[in-house]
Design a protein around this nucleic acid. Structure first.
Lengths: 244, 244, 244, 244
DNA sequence: TATGAATGAGAGTTCATTCAT
DNA sequence: CATGAATGAACTCTCATTCAT
């Protein structure tokens, strides 16, 4: 961009011009690198704040403090708080993709690949829960870790009450209490996951319907627990949901 | 108001005392009832605010405004904002339980019960997403719907990238592209649901491990897609995961 | 508004109720008065800040400081900075109206009234220039009093250059240098005043056109300086501009 | 770049010295010209910002952005924001002078010249209101166009109230309602213009007194509306105000 | 000359909470 | 029980200006 300016000073010889341009490029590269470094520094600070205080507790001030900057200086690197968030999320997704790409099954067989890849993304988020926060804008709004456990316990119990009928039904279908508990937990997780996807608009990215998928999960669960019990006629609008 | 009580103290017959106590009890009951009524009024206001503006957008001021109270008055009924949140959640769970209790299958058969009850709690949260917010402290922190879609789109794409290998593996196992997409969505939802349960401490309420449950889901998925492929030897630490 | 609450406690006798209501009213009145007092206090602080630092230099923080308040407390009395400004302006206009109303000519003759009333509003703004600031949102943007006089002087001279031709023309029409200067000053003021009215939208409040009014002023000026010179045919779209 | 100079210092013939000096001068001139060009570039940017966002909305950052400079670079050409403002104003005044100089009456008669020149400067500011802003430091402080019209309307009405007595007096002197309105608008504009001149120190440039000039305007107005009514004895300290 | 980084002050506004009355 | 007032800390973001390079 600055080349034009140099062209205006015709005193410089060809060689001089080349040298100057080279020098300029070097300097620019150096500065670019430094800029990136400092941007990364801010991003690191941001990540540490997000990690400690969650998405909701992260403030520009705090991020600046950790990066040894004044709040205003942050805006040299990011246009807004949201931009920081986006950069953090982008970088999180890169790490996720790296881990998934690195996961390779012992033998190249589809079912082993499926298992390995699934474990990869799941493991990533299991080990780095804040990245899940980032991905779903999960803000621990009120108490540092949800509610005070004093308040939390009876509420948890009441939630369990709502889910118990399913568990009992599964026991009635022949599952052991332990197995029923596990299946019920899985069932709840499945539903909640679908709801979260729907709620955050992520489900649109799959073009799917949470309701239909849940129905399918339940049908398949019933089928698995007591084969032959399920109505043999599949719903007409989802004929091949698990077909091949 | 207390004047009467003071006048009663000096001379006090047995009958008077009884009458007074009765009167006092009545008044206390009345006041208690009124207190409850007004508490409910505040709670109603809070619910409407939460419903409109979400967990993040709800402020004591706004709640007070809708309840025709001053902010300070709220603290007569609730110790803190968190307490309101807890009360709201409690009440949300009651409604959830009511709906689940009301759900009855056409015939009393375990698998129909399971289906009906599962659909009940799922439907409740699907219809009332704010109650899910309450249950999991889900706050849309930054932009009204996550990030600006401008920023959001490439990030969404990148997330999809991380999940695609599973989808491709499922196609390699013989699934149609549509079926693979659906199964992949379900797989992602399942994992995310487990992670959310773990992340918010809800999984402890089931005494389960997210990792093991996810492993089980994947194993079962593989089994369903290509029977016979799975190693016949179950992991020793979860021998009866789906046993009866 | 709280009356309903009292109606719910039927223990109170008629007399008690009256007394209580009276007491309540008194308290409310007292509080209202105090509230007004404090609001006035804030307004006083605001006025003093505006007076010292101008419209542009007034900040909520500074106003709060002078009123011995925290910045947040200001918002108990005013919704925004703009609201303070509006209140200040409203009050300024009241004072203006008072002064105009109080101005009475020695004898009740229309031309004396005109003179007295005009002098009244003019004098008000001449004595209280900040009220003019308020009325026209005049902000001293850069330096405390316009530009540094070092910079200002040559600029002033150059402005004068632009106006000198008029002055010379008036001298050519027979005015003494002093008279020409005065008339030129008046001419400039008239034009600037019209422009300011137009610029700030105040002219719409009169439903007038700045251009036409300026033209009329110039015509009348020419007529006054050299009677008979002006074209005898008035513009058809403003036939009675100075007619009676 | 300075290398050549160092090499020149040891041995230096007369001719060499002359050539070098000439070369130096040329380079300096060239640089000076370039400097001026770039200064003008910055000024252009500043003008466009001022034109779009007004005096209040112009920031060094924005000016630099439009000039494709960094904010710091601006300080190579101007010492401060105020200096930019001054340069802009200077240039504005040049344009004003050009327009006034270019304005020529059809025939060279003093009263036509007066009219043409007056229309010239008035027209310039009417067409370029931002130049008026520059000239009088007019900043729209709070809302983009003064106050929210919701707040503005009653305030406008109240201002009108203060001016109405004059209007009524003029009607009492025989003016039609329309004529009275126009005269009143002109009267208000005249006063406001004088006040603005006084307020911004511009009146000193004329060595005039706003009060006296206003008095004179009112007197002349009265005289025009009802000849003979005015006291025949002119104030002794302004004997020849309108004399020839 | 020009950059890029950074400062430090400050802007208006919101918040949960406290407390005397 | 409820009010109205007030606190104090926090919020994101903008600004003119400086300075080493």
């Amino acid at each position: 961009m600055d080349v034009h300016l140099h062209e205006l000073t015709p005193v410089l010889s060809e060689a001089d011009a080349q040298a100057a341009q080279q020098q300029l490029q070097q300097r620019q590269q150096r500065q670019l690198a430094m800029s990136d470094t400092r941007r990364a520094l801010v991003l690191d600070a941001a990540r540490s704040v997000f990690a400690e205080k969650g998405v909701g507790g992260a403030s520009i001030r705090e991020i600046a403090r950790r990066a040894s900057y004044t709040p205003g200086a942050i805006y040299s690197y990011f246009d807004s708080k949201e931009a920081i968030y986006a950069a953090l999320l982008a970088e999180s997704l890169e790490r996720l993709n790296q881990e998934v790409a690195a996961a390779r099954p012992p033998k190249v067989q589809p079912h082993l690949t499926l298992s390995a890849k699934a474990q990869a993304w799941f493991g990533f988020y299991a080990r780095n829960p804040r990245d899940l926060d980032l991905g779903f804008y999960l803000v621990q709004g009120l108490a540092p870790r949800g509610l005070t456990s004093e308040l939390n316990q009876p509420l948890n119990a009441r939630l369990h009450d709502a889910l118990r009928p399913c568990e009992q039904a599964m026991q009635a279908m022949g599952l052991s209490p332990e197995a029923a508990l596990r299946e019920n937990t899985a069932l709840f997780a499945h539903g909640v996951g679908l709801l979260l996807l729907q709620h955050t608009g992520r489900i649109r990215m799959f073009g799917q319907s949470a309701e239909l998928l849940f129905q399918a999960y339940v049908d398949q669960l019933v089928d698995r627990l007591s084969p032959g019990e399920r109505a043999p006629v599949p719903a007409p609008d989802q004929p091949d949901l698990f077909g091949r």
